[in-house]
């Protein structure tokens, strides 16, 4: 299979001890302490290896490579905010041309990996992503979803959840919920294009993450990953809690871990007993207005209701 990296182990792993020790994101990045997105990326690049080129869109992670430094062992191309998948198209097509014309040894092939935040993935980059999916581009897409435009100071994006505070959806007397709109379902938007592989991931579930990349490896075409990425300054919590918060979002059922192979959706982890969403919400400044000065019961109920409804739809609610 073209694009297959012989170095990449594809057998599933069982425990965190089997995660490759090699680091492909080296230390010393300007990302915030406790950045869930960076932890996601660290695991993803352990799975992908060094023979990759990352095509990035404007986001926090654009600042990972600031001239003349880069924390990566692999290549990197920063494009702009809306068009990383189009950049991936150009790189992939060019690599294929070079291989076909005998100018690049197939052993020297690179995987093309798009890396963007939710702002690009859910909003501005939808057209270029849809185009890449439609053309069945052989690439990986890693979206670290911190549920807002983080780099510009945490404004509301299409990924921002209902009831949360962002810099442009502050709660107030007229709008007590803060964000009034529902988060878009990017998984379903992407899934409607019928890509060979699509999954949600979490930095708190590295084994699940690693195995999803290993599984994705066998498919030619788009391989897409959305990571629910805890963001200490944006969400308002102590950096030390980053992993436990990411874990809570899964345990409460807010972030379902799932995959879709050619459109067929399976959940890869279902909590035995769902924790109440409040356990997750009350840990974050961005939801503080739901609890004080008065409890906004209707909003809390409605958030819990939406989560229950999701799992009921899949008949997975105990």
């Amino acid at each position: 299979m073209q694009g297959r990296d012989k170095d990449m182990d594809t057998a599933p792993i069982r425990s965190i001890r089997e995660i490759p020790p090699e680091e492909n994101v080296l230390s010393g990045t300007p990302a915030c302490a406790g950045c869930g997105g960076l932890l996601t990326l660290r695991h993803c690049l352990k799975a992908l290896g060094e023979k990759i080129v990352i095509v990035n869109a404007a986001s926090c992670f654009t600042l990972l490579s600031i001239y003349p430094f880069t924390p990566f062992k692999n290549s990197w191309l920063y494009t702009a905010m809306a068009c990383a998948p189009a950049g991936a198209q150009g790189v992939r097509d060019a690599l294929d041309i070079l291989i076909k014309k005998g100018k690049l040894d197939p052993e020297e092939n690179l995987k093309v990996v798009v890396l963007t935040g939710d702002g690009s993935a859910y909003d501005m980059g939808l057209s270029s992503t849809s185009g890449a999916l439609y053309r069945n581009l052989d690439f990986y897409y890693i979206c670290y979803d911190n549920e807002a435009y983080g780099n510009t100071g945490f404004q509301q994006s299409g990924a921002t959840p209902f009831g949360s505070r962002t810099a442009t959806s502050p709660p107030g007397g007229v709008r007590p919920a803060g964000t009034q709109l529902q988060k878009k379902d990017l998984f379903e938007i992407w899934n409607s294009h019928n890509p060979p592989y699509l999954a949600t991931i979490s930095p708190a579930y590295p084994v699940d993450l690693m195995n999803k990349f290993r599984k994705a490896e066998q498919y030619k075409g788009p391989k897409l990953f959305i990571s629910h990425s805890s963001c200490p300054p944006g969400w308002g919590f102590d950096p030390s809690q980053s992993v436990s918060l990411a874990k809570l979002s899964v345990e409460t059922g807010i972030w379902p871990l799932k995959e879709s192979v050619h459109g067929k959706v399976e959940h890869t982890f279902v909590p035995k007993k769902f924790k109440p969403v409040e356990d997750y919400l009350k840990e974050q400044e961005r939801f503080a207005h739901l609890f004080k000065p008065v409890r906004q019961e209707d909003i809390l109920k409605s958030i819990q209701g939406m989560v229950d409804e999701y799992w009921r739809k899949y008949k997975l609610l105990p």
Partner: peptide
């Protein structure tokens, strides 16, 4: 490996 289009 090379980083292209990087920020300054």
């Amino acid at each position: 490996p090379m980083a292209q289009g990087v920020a300054v």
